[in-house]
Design a protein around this nucleic acid. Structure first.
Lengths: 192, 192
DNA sequence: CGCCGAGTTGAACTGAATCAAGAAACGTGG
DNA sequence: CCACGTTTCTTGATTCAGTTCAACTCGGCG
């Protein structure tokens, strides 16, 4: 889907604004498992996923990767804290498939926020939407058992299961890979 | 602190805008343990705490109260999901002390968002700030032990410990009251 | 003085983590 | 297209942090 369509779906921009806004984005092809941002770097760009799946993760002291978020087609992707506060990122950002992204720098985004009231609104809406997603995940993690969390995930990211490694999903859900494997097994037994 | 000061600290408004904006807020006195919003109702107002502490919580099937957030002086308070999406709230909202709040309705807020670019910016910034807070809490809950979560809390809400019942804090941190009690005991032993 | 809610302590239990092996699937080069 | 090594996934046995349940302490207040 085209970038302008994605934006129009959130806020309806006059054509001239939209054209100007779109001109500040770049279209990039990014390959599987190549880090877009590494831990410790400042994340200077916001991405929109046109095609592919990405994730953000951080490295624990013991070297284990913990997935924080997945980003699928149509979602904005970034190391949120780092991008908004312009401090070093705790997270790595990478795509799990060869992908196509639109990107915009923080400076240009700020410029567009200042230039267009509509753009500021888009920023507010995106930020609110992300807020809702985080709150939902928090509720899932805080109050649900491992099994319920898996169901939450199936709902939040339908069929991502087939696109990303099990271990990534497990750490996203705050459980070990072994536990997730057992849950799945039980789940499939229930269905058949 | 005055409402206009709180707003100015976030975005600098011209005097005339600020005056108009402030006129849409009401100042209310709210008493301890009286629900502002009940589960199932739509939360129609956003509050700013001038004086007092509030919390949002939800009732589990078994009747137990789980605290979702605390709100202290200078923070905006609401049943976020309900307020932004205007659907029935999962959460109850109440103050834990007799308090003074400023409130604005969703309609008036939308009106101000549309009227002033600056106000839209304020909305975006608040939303981003809240997003950061939720992400932090999520990280604490997902990756830290009960003891570490307690430290996170002391940092996030300094000295709230003396203002709210232990059970509320425990459920906020995703642990039982007994566990929190034991952690505290160990903590105080370490210090002395 | 005795009740009541808030907090503490103890003992048994449990869901999920950890540790340790295997089995399956995957891709790369011959 | 197959053989090989690597990564991903499954399974089992053991351990542990935190829950649950139940009794007890403490301070305030009628």
């Amino acid at each position: 889907m085209k970038l302008s369509k994605y934006l129009q779906n959130i806020v309806s921009f006059p054509d001239d604004e939209l054209e100007d806004i779109v001109s500040y984005f770049e279209r990039e092809t990014v390959y599987k498992n190549v880090p877009l941002v590494k831990g410790g770097q400042v994340c200077s760009k916001l991405y929109l996923v046109e095609k592919g799946v990405g994730r953000s993760y951080y490295l624990k002291e013991d070297g284990k990767e913990i997935t924080q978020w997945f980003f699928v087609e149509g979602q904005f992707m970034s190391s949120i804290e780092s991008f908004f506060q312009q401090n070093p990122s705790l997270y790595y950002l990478e795509m799990l498939e060869d992908s196509v992204l639109y990107s915009i720098t923080r400076e240009n985004l700020d410029l567009l926020f200042a230039r267009y009231h509509n753009m500021e609104k888009l920023g507010r809406l995106l930020s609110t939407e992300m807020l809702m997603r985080v709150v939902n995940k928090l509720n899932a993690i805080q109050f649900q058992t491992a099994r319920e969390r898996y169901d939450y995930m199936l709902n939040e990211y339908p069929n991502i299961v087939n696109r990303v490694p099990l271990g990534n999903i497990a750490s996203y859900l705050g459980m070990t890979q072994e536990t997730l494997s057992r849950i799945r097994k039980a789940e499939s037994r229930n269905k058949s």
